[in-house]
Simulated assay, not measured.
Amino acid sequence: MLTVIGIGPGSFAMMTQEAIAALQEAEIVVGYKTYTHLVKPLTGDKQVIKTGMCKEIERCQTAIELAQAGHKVALISSGDAGIYGMAGLVLELVTSQQLDIEVRLVAGITASIAAASLLGAPLMHDFCHISLSDLLTPWPVIEKRIIAAASADFVICFYNPRSRGREGHLARAFELMREFTNPQTPVGVVKAAGRKKEQKWLTTFGEMDFEPVDMTSLVIVGNKTTFVRDGLMITPRGYEL
């Protein structure tokens, strides 16, 4: 049995009961080293296999082979494993290799949902996720998606917004959106949601400071109806008040 678990953004308070139970049932836990550290109190004396960044295929293949050998294996991802996590890759590998193993997926709270709850209610209407990492997606494709989402007036959640290797991607995204986005549009930023160094702040599209944003941050850009009141970022659903 291979269980692919979304452990949420980082705190036990945001981990589902199903995820906790699945971790407790597992014999072996496989994951990126940062995520295995987050669940260390739940793994006890279980065997834990850690890998670093850019080892996703190796990590999933290891988990699959251990499950094939008859072990109860938990493969963990932060947030939800089906959103920029390991769920899709595991299923690709299992189906392409035509393996006869049981794979169970356990949903988790995403970074966008966690961040939104800290900011107010910015995701009340249609929204989308866009990752600004071009490691697996060509940057021209990402640019097309940014323009399409902005022109359609989606609230946009930017994952992987800025790192040392791509410091200018978030600024470029805002440049592409400028034609469609009012400078007063609210923007919320949450860094390390659900973790010890959690931070959040509100700004506007026109006054956005990119410098404090890093890879642990999630940036939410409102739509034309989004507003801030009493320190809360709110996107109306359309109810008549």
Rank of each mutant, 00 (worst) to 15 (best):
L2H: 02
L2S: 05
T3F: 06
T3L: 01
T3P: 09
V4T: 05
V4P: 10
I5H: 04
G6P: 12
P9T: 05
G10K: 08
F12H: 02
M15T: 14
T16E: 11
T16N: 07
I20W: 08
L23R: 07
Q24H: 15
Q24N: 15
E25D: 15
E25W: 09
G31R: 02
G31L: 07
Y32D: 02
Y32E: 03
T34Q: 11
H37G: 09
K40D: 15
P41T: 06
L42C: 00
L42H: 09
T43S: 10
V48M: 10
V48L: 09
I49R: 09
I49E: 13
K50L: 10
K50H: 11
G52C: 02
M53Y: 10
C54E: 14
C54W: 14
C54R: 15
I57P: 05
E58T: 13
C60I: 05
T62G: 04
A63Y: 07
I64T: 06
E65V: 03
E65R: 09
A67N: 03
G70K: 11
H71G: 00
H71I: 02
K72V: 14
A74W: 11
A74H: 11
I76P: 12
D80A: 03
G82L: 01
G85V: 10
G85D: 13
G88W: 13
V90M: 14
V90I: 12
E92Y: 12
L99W: 12
V106W: 14
V106K: 14
A111I: 07
S112C: 12
I113Q: 15
A114S: 11
A116N: 05
A121D: 08
P122I: 06
L123A: 07
D126S: 03
H129D: 13
I130H: 10
D134M: 02
D134G: 04
L136R: 07
V141F: 02
I142Y: 06
I146T: 07
D153V: 02
I156D: 03
F158A: 06
R164Q: 15
E167V: 01
G168A: 04
H169V: 01
L170V: 10
A171R: 09
A171T: 06
R172G: 01
R172M: 06
R172T: 12
R172I: 07
E175P: 08
L176P: 10
E179W: 02
F180Q: 03
T181R: 12
T181P: 04
N182M: 04
P183Q: 04
Q184K: 12
Q184H: 12
Q184Y: 09
T185L: 09
T185M: 05
V189S: 01
V190A: 04
K191S: 15
A192I: 01
A193Q: 06
A193H: 02
Q199S: 10
W201Y: 15
L202I: 10
L202R: 03
V213P: 10
L218K: 09
I220F: 04
I220K: 08
T226R: 05
V228P: 11
G231I: 07
G231Y: 01
G231V: 00
L232G: 04
M233I: 02
M233G: 00
T235F: 03
P236E: 01
Y239S: 07
L241G: 11
